[in-house]
Amino acid sequence: MTSAMSDLTGWRERADAALARALPDPSLPPQRLSAAMRHAVLLGGKRMRPLLVYASGVALGANVESLDAPAVAVELIHAYSLVHDDLPAMDDDALRRGQPTVHVAFDEATAILAGDALQSLAFEVLADAPVSDAIRVSLLRTLAIASGVGGMCGGQALDLAATGNGTAISVADLERLHALKTGALIRAAVRMGALCGGASSTELDALDRYADALGLAFQVRDDILDIEGNSATLGKTAGKDVAQDKATFPALIGLEASRARLQELGAAMTAALAPFGARADALAALGRLAIERDR
């Protein structure tokens, strides 16, 4: 497992470098917009989604160079979603990754444009991926579906509808909400890496089960950290879920049951990865990080 952690460190550095190359030159106009985009992307973050691209792709035998584009693209979509999620009209947060959110550091209009531009850039990068035309189309379709009304945006709409009435939603509906808002992009990251490695339908099904469990585990842990964590460690405002009466797992089933659900999801990830053996060590390590993280 030491080797897997070493791989993750190297892939994170690779993703950071690729993201920096993909973003617009801040010395060229429109400088303010370019600076806002770089602020949104380059000031830290766990890079979970790019790491999942690399981990699943390498597990399936993909050339690491072919994974840079989907790794960058999925992180750009994630960054854009955070910029918009932090806006006053959405979650209204002033802190992200330990830094002022984009609309605070710049202004609200620039933040909206930065999010829009990051989304467009994601598909531009993916359209130039050094893979076959068939795989490129599959990558574009996978990311588009995960980002839209049947994925992240749809989940955010459900989340907004539940905010202020957080205990009125059922656990099943909450899991569906997070399967869209958080899980869809995580699933897309895993699937895009596997597609670059020529995964079979059986392998894709197993990786989808892993990703579904990981996405939900990530959100359950997020809900727990909002209660138990602090803003300095989290890099974002702690306690906001309770203050806004958001639908969360601790609110519906309690902290202990939420921790037990995490363990169940960890077991589901282990079972899904079993057919891959040691090839999936990095994916297994990312699953543990999602469950055990403190930020």
Rank of each mutant, 00 (worst) to 15 (best):
E292L: 07
L255F: 04
W11G: 00
S201M: 11
A238N: 06
M5R: 14
L126A: 00
D25E: 10
S170D: 03
N165W: 13
A117F: 05
Q244A: 13
S231G: 09
A69E: 02
R141L: 12
A168H: 12
A134G: 11
Q156V: 12
A17Q: 13
R187L: 11
A117L: 09
D245W: 03
Q263K: 10
K246R: 14
L177R: 07
I169M: 15
G44R: 11
L113T: 10
A18I: 01
A184I: 06
D245K: 13
R187D: 13
A188T: 03
T202V: 14
L143I: 09
G10C: 08
L216C: 05
D241P: 03
E175H: 12
P70A: 01
A17L: 10
S147L: 09
A232Q: 14
L286G: 04
M269L: 11
G277M: 06
F249I: 04
R191P: 00
A278L: 14
I112L: 15
D173W: 08
I112Q: 14
Y210V: 10
D226H: 07
L234T: 02
E65Y: 04
R38G: 03
E108G: 06
V72P: 02
A284I: 10
L286M: 08
P29E: 15
E13N: 13
A79Q: 04
S27A: 15
R47G: 01
T9R: 15
A243V: 02
M1N: 13
A238L: 04
E292G: 04
D86I: 10
G229V: 03
A20W: 06
G164W: 09
A111Y: 06
D16N: 13
V41C: 05
